[in-house]
Design a protein around this nucleic acid. Structure first.
Length: 617
RNA sequence: GGACCCGUGGUGUAGCGGCCCAACAUGCCAGCCUGUCACGCUGGAGAUCGCCGGUUCGAAUCCGGUCGGGUCCGCCA
């Protein structure tokens, strides 16, 4: 696509183009000035091409070339020429040729940039990058990431369209949809005193689209949550939101899985999948084997239950070690992971692990080291005795050189702590292949989680999720409105038709088969202690809609930012967002947020009376 | 809401009570250079050490506060 500024891009010309005339436009990546001969590396999104300006051949262009500086925007016309033998540059795709310039024009000058744009590996303070994000995005690594994200979204759209999905946009000014997070609020001018909420997700709207008969919907949806930020959390982020009618859990998972495979292949063709079909774990199984509901399955090091073996070896249900025995007697667990090749860890290294375990909530961390000749040793050997130590080594499968780490605690803490230690150790020991994409599913989450403080059951995901058919009887005790929440209620054992998609230990997204009957939805809400009035207030539209023929439906929402970050080998979603915000929610480039004009307050009928905790003036 | 880390020429770092009106690299400016590609050579400019206060004979350095950035817990699908 030739324009007055260019006939080719800076990544386009090859040896076969030699002899042709061409015009290129781009930024001056680097200038090498040899006096009478000037080399300009001209850069655009597509690549870099060397432009040569010879004083003898083009005196006027040479004068311009001497004046150019880094990041000037220029256009150069000339002849494509094969480089002199021995001067080819195989680090450039265009390195076999150069543009022998006859005409060079400066289209735009540039101040000296605040940081290096032409050095991909140069470390730069992130706040500086964010302030000059348009320059940061000019850098090659960021260009690559944005291009990758673009491929990801494009592939998502193509796959969905190929499978009869309709892309529907839903509004950003809506009514609060309680997902559990704090809403962003937009005051209404036309209705002073009332507010819109920005969507935390299009959850209700997509279900309404199912009631509307759209059958298969998807959207690349912007979502907003006013919670504290993290490396993997921004106040506004992007979800692939999709919903399907007349499906069960298997149908949704099958589509999503196929979609994820195709999209991965399109976005990062060079990265292998660890397994397809994706492994599926029930929530209980994932917790038991990995100590987390988002397992990184690129490596083994699964958790081991030492309880039964200890009780046997110690005789009379006692291992001999009080900490273990007490935990077991109280209904707790003694669990272990085996850290390969760590038997010779130093004392301070072990202390570090113990500290870590404590931070994750454990009371302590015991260990048994198996030395290179296979002999176990442990500071608690004097309590456990040889038989128990032997049992630990054999049950855990520890081999010479391995270190067995053990936690005794209540079941949730023991699993959680070792789950954290497992991923922590895997990172240090580099057990995971950084290139592999290990997707897996975790499903059959408990419907409800007992909140001891509030004395009630809470939905673990969203309240629209349906219960597994075989667990429906467990909810029977809840019928009627005189239900009094109790932690022993059999409903606590009910599992939801819920599924999370996990990639390399990150939760990519989650979804469920929804409740599509009004009476069941009411029951679900009641169980969480919501009154009928509150439900009407919050979910009136959905409940009404369900009175007019709602199809069975289910779907999922997948975090595009996290997905892109993982595909780009980044552990921070800011690296795959064009204009992210800082941890305190600021846009350093636009300097947002900022106080509104006084007139804007008045127009909305608002007055600022000070932040909470701040004294009013 | 809490814990921790960071803030020194344009950029990245060093210096961590006097040797520092601050060092190194790179960038920038000027001159020279016709085959470089992180071009080279020579010379030069450029920082009241985030900000405020305190300790001290003396503070980039120690202390308190504050602002900004980050990591983690709480929070959050």
């Amino acid at each position: 696509m030739a324009t007055p500024y260019r006939t080719h891009t800076c990544g386009q010309l090859r040896a076969t183009d030699a002899g042709a005339s061409a015009r290129l436009a781009g930024w001056v990546h680097r200038r090498r000035d040899h006096g009478h001969l000037v080399f300009l590396d001209l850069r655009d999104r597509y690549g870099i091409t060397q432009v040569v300006v010879n004083e003898d051949e083009a005196p006027r262009a040479h004068k311009v070339a001497s004046r150019t500086r880094s990041e000037f925007v220029v256009t150069a016309e000339g002849t494509v020429a094969a480089r002199l033998p021995g001067t080819e540059n195989d680090r450039l795709a265009t390195g076999a040729i150069e543009l022998r310039t006859t005409d060079l024009q400066i289209l735009s000058e540039s101040k000296t940039p605040p940081f290096y744009i032409n050095e991909p590996d140069a470390p730069i303070d992130e706040s500086l990058r964010l302030k000059y994000r348009y320059l940061d995005l000019r850098r090659e690594p960021m260009q690559q990431r944005l291009l990758l994200r673009g491929r990801l979204v494009q592939a998502i759209r193509e796959v969905h369209h190929a499978h009869a999905f309709v892309e529907v946009e839903t509004p950003d000014l809506i009514k609060s949809t309680p997902e559990g997070a704090r809403d962003f609020i937009v005051p209404s001018r036309l209705q002073p005193g009332s507010v819109y909420a920005l969507p935390q997700s299009p959850q209700q709207l997509k279900q309404l689209l199912m009631v509307a008969g759209m059958d298969r919907y998807f959207q690349i949806a912007r979502c907003f949550r006013d919670e504290d930020l993290r490396g993997d959390r921004q106040p506004e982020f992007t979800q692939l939101d999709l919903e399907m009618s007349f499906v069960d859990e298997a149908a949704v998972m099958a589509f999503v899985e196929q979609m994820a495979i195709e999209v991965s292949a399109a976005a990062v063709p060079d990265r292998p999948l660890q397994a397809a079909p994706f492994p599926r774990f029930t929530y209980a199984e994932a917790m038991e084997r990995f100590g987390t509901d988002k397992p990184d399955v690129r490596f083994g090091m699964e958790l081991i239950d030492l309880g039964p073996a200890l009780e046997r070896s110690g005789g009379s249900a006692a291992s001999g070690f009080r900490v273990f025995d007490d935990a077991l007697a109280a209904g707790g667990r003694v669990m272990a992971v085996v850290a390969p090749r760590m038997a010779d860890a130093t004392r301070s290294r072990i202390d570090e692990l113990v500290d870590q375990a404590r931070r994750f909530g454990a009371k302590g961390l015991a260990h048994v080291a198996v030395n290179s000749s296979g002999t176990p040793s442990s500071p608690i050997a004097k309590f456990l005795g040889e038989e128990s130590i032997g049992a630990i080594v054999s049950v855990s499968g520890a081999e010479a050189g391995d270190l067995v780490l053990m936690v005794a605690d209540t079941p949730p803490i023991a699993l959680d702590v070792l789950g954290h230690l497992r991923t922590e150790l895997a990172t240090r020991l580099q057990l995971a292949d950084p290139n592999v994409l290990a997707y897996c599913w975790v499903h059959r989450f408990p419907m409800y989680q007992w909140d001891a403080e509030l004395g009630r059951w809470d939905a673990t995901h969203n309240p629209f999720s349906g219960v597994l058919p075989e667990d429906e009887p467990l909810l029977a005790t809840l019928s009627g409105d005189s239900m009094r929440p109790s932690p022993d209620d059999p409903a606590g054992r009910a599992r939801a038709m819920q599924y999370d998609l996990v990639l390399n230990g990150w939760e990519l997204g989650g979804g469920s088969v929804r409740i599509h009957r009004r009476d069941l939805l009411e029951q679900s809400f009641a169980l969480q202690g919501h009154s009928l009035e509150a439900m009407q207030e919050k979910f009136g539209a959905l409940m009404r809609a369900f009175e007019y023929g709602a199809p069975p439906h289910g779907g999922i929402a997948i975090g595009i930012d996290r997905w892109a970050a993982l595909l780009a080998h980044q552990d921070n979603i800011r690296e795959v967002m064009a204009f992210p915000k800082t941890q305190s929610g600021s846009d350093l480039m636009l300097e947002a947020p900022s106080p509104p004009d006084p007139g804007q307050w008045a127009e909305l009928g608002l007055r600022f009376v000070g932040a909470s905790g701040e004294r009013n003036r």
